[in-house]
Design a protein around this nucleic acid. Structure first.
Lengths: 338, 338
DNA sequence: AGGTGATTCTACAACGTTGTAGTATGGGCG
DNA sequence: CGCCCATACTACAACGTTGTAGAATCACCT
């Protein structure tokens, strides 16, 4: 069916290698030969067979992206940014969903599941720092996210501690002193929850505001429903608070919804800030203040670094850590109260 | 680096074809031979080179999914469902973003951009029915969405007319008679907007409620901001309404936000229903009634049908149309008023 | 004139896999 | 015993591409 180099060569009256040379911009070809080949190519509608090409070259031009779930907005937007970044570099992206499941994550690292790709961008959720050894794989791998630090691979992440500190400082600057946190994870030190909580505590300390453990709302997952449930518990506990730091936007939105049902006014009674800068927060009622974690920069860096590792141009450079720049986005949910 | 059949064959003391036979579950192999080969495979950590395999077989085991943008929640959730459906059938998914741009969509259909895939699931946005001829491509193609009907390929879609009719009927059943629509497209007949509008009008007609063109809010895109803008215009126009049908959830959410700012109570003053059943509507204030368009069924059908076309098991069956089952989801935004 | 090197092209092998065609052994049956 | 067929395996070619090595032609210099 599809035309091959052989067909083109026959039509143009040259050898297949010459056709190949034309396609690959080899320099020493007579203009008229080149023209004849080009004509034959467009006549026959030839396009190279990428399987054959990758068999020969060992490269597929495809990278894998393993994320928990695309239905989580953060990862959908990350995938969007990643695909665009990959396209700018001539790469395609194959997406794998792990469901945030540790065993599935390990399987992806070990198994030949992600054949057909030159390398992997990996955003684990179920794995933790003790699993770092599993990242010692024999294919190019770039780690994303906050689950594992100091592993054996390049790592691209957002500035969790600093940006959470800035988010908290923002609420403090509004005169709030009793800042609840929604989305904490019991005993976590690293991981998004652990790091952001650390930033929270640093900001409190800097401002001389005492830390009150009763202000921590724990959740397992970071969906809207978890934010809602956690806020319900906090309200039931009777602890007082005048601000909420949702460790991500969906948590904050879920919590906001429950507070409003309970008659708390935002931002008058409670100022709220989230984290992630999801599009959604731009149209919630009230609009949600948040942290822009620099998703495009993360995606772009990750793809660039992975490509360096694939091409070998990074050489033997030891594992590197990259932190994207963040920004505090002020919206209605934390507007100054008169 | 990576072990090949040859290495395994050498280690097991058999021919490479025997190793290949073991891998492909050929039946006439002595148990002990099989065992030796299996041992060698795991010793060497062999895994088949998929490029070579696809060169030989002409199949890659990868399908393409072309959608406008993953940052639009609907497509993120569609991609999620599609990847899961593909995985159940042993396929991987390569995602291409068109940005909803017609020329980019045509390019994907014509060019060899999506090499390395066995077929394509294509959800156009910029193309329209007149472009149907471009769907005459020489690779397996399954069309998704509402932009083109009666084209030369299999087509999987949601029941737009019927479900929009049901959504409208739902609002009518709540005693509402002045039902505004947000997201109409000027002069569109097919396309999500056109079809859903048709369902709307059918429901009105059936109920004997006159159609008032002033109740149509036009937008170009279907983002939150468009819903918000359109609602602002409608409020400014002074036209009266007691219900809103957002042609998708994000439009409805944007519109709700503006109405609430303007002091309209939902659902007391205005009942609202959206379309898509995004997770988001479950946690908005109030929670958003909507249409569940059967996304999982759409994805599953699309992947199944594409696989039939790829394998040729569908034979010469002419293009088929599939409509997924929908469901009206009642939430607070259209709760009965006392 | 002869040598040198650039230019233009070709033949062949190889990437790792699987289909086809075949060889060798053994068992069952007349 | 001789035949046939099932079993268990192997050798080779082919999928379509590109790297390597080299052949043929030409321009230019000594």
């Amino acid at each position: 069916m599809a035309a091959t180099l052989k067909d083109v060569a026959l039509a143009a009256g040259v050898s297949i290698k010459t056709v190949s040379n034309v396609i690959n911009d080899y320099e020493h070809i007579r203009p008229d030969t080149k023209q004849r080949v080009m004509d034959a190519i467009s006549d026959l509608g030839y396009s190279p067979n990428l399987s054959a090409r990758s068999l020969r070259s060992g490269r597929t031009g495809v990278i894998g992206l393993a994320v928990p779930e695309l239905s989580l907005s953060y990862f959908a937007e990350l995938a969007d940014s990643t695909i665009k970044a990959a396209e700018r570099r001539g790469l395609k992206v194959l997406i794998e969903q792990t469901g945030g499941d540790r065993s599935r994550e390990l399987e992806i690292l070990s198994g030949p599941r992600l054949q057909m790709t030159d390398g992997l961008l990996f955003s684990p959720l179920g794995m933790s720092n003790e699993d770092a050894e599993y990242l010692n794989v024999n294919f190019p791998l770039v780690l994303l996210g906050e689950r594992i630090f100091g592993g054996p691979t390049d790592h691209v992440t957002m500035s969790n501690v600093e940006s959470a500190q800035a988010a908290t400082a923002h609420l403090l600057s509004r005169g709030r002193r009793r800042i609840a946190v929604i989305g904490a994870h019991e005993g976590e030190v690293i991981g998004s929850a652990g790091l952001r909580l650390r930033g929270y505590r640093q900001a409190l300390e800097e401002a001389g505001v005492p830390f009150d453990p009763r202000l921590l709302g724990y959740t397992t997952l970071w969906h809207r429903s978890n934010g809602a449930t956690s806020m319900r518990e906090m309200l039931a506990s009777g602890v007082e608070f005048d601000a909420v730091f949702g460790l991500n936007d969906t948590l904050a939105l879920g919590a906001m919804r429950v507070m409003q049902e309970a008659g708390r006014r935002i931002p008058e009674d409670v100022a709220v800030i989230g984290f992630d800068d999801l599009d959604e927060g731009r149209y919630s009622l009230p609009t949600l203040s948040t942290i822009d974690p620099g998703r495009d920069e993360i995606a772009d860096t990750a793809v660039r670094v992975l490509q360096e590792r694939i091409s070998g141009s990074a050489g033997d450079v030891p594992p590197r850590e990259f932190e994207a720049r963040f920004q505090v986005i002020e919206r209605e949910s934390s507007a100054p109260s008169p």
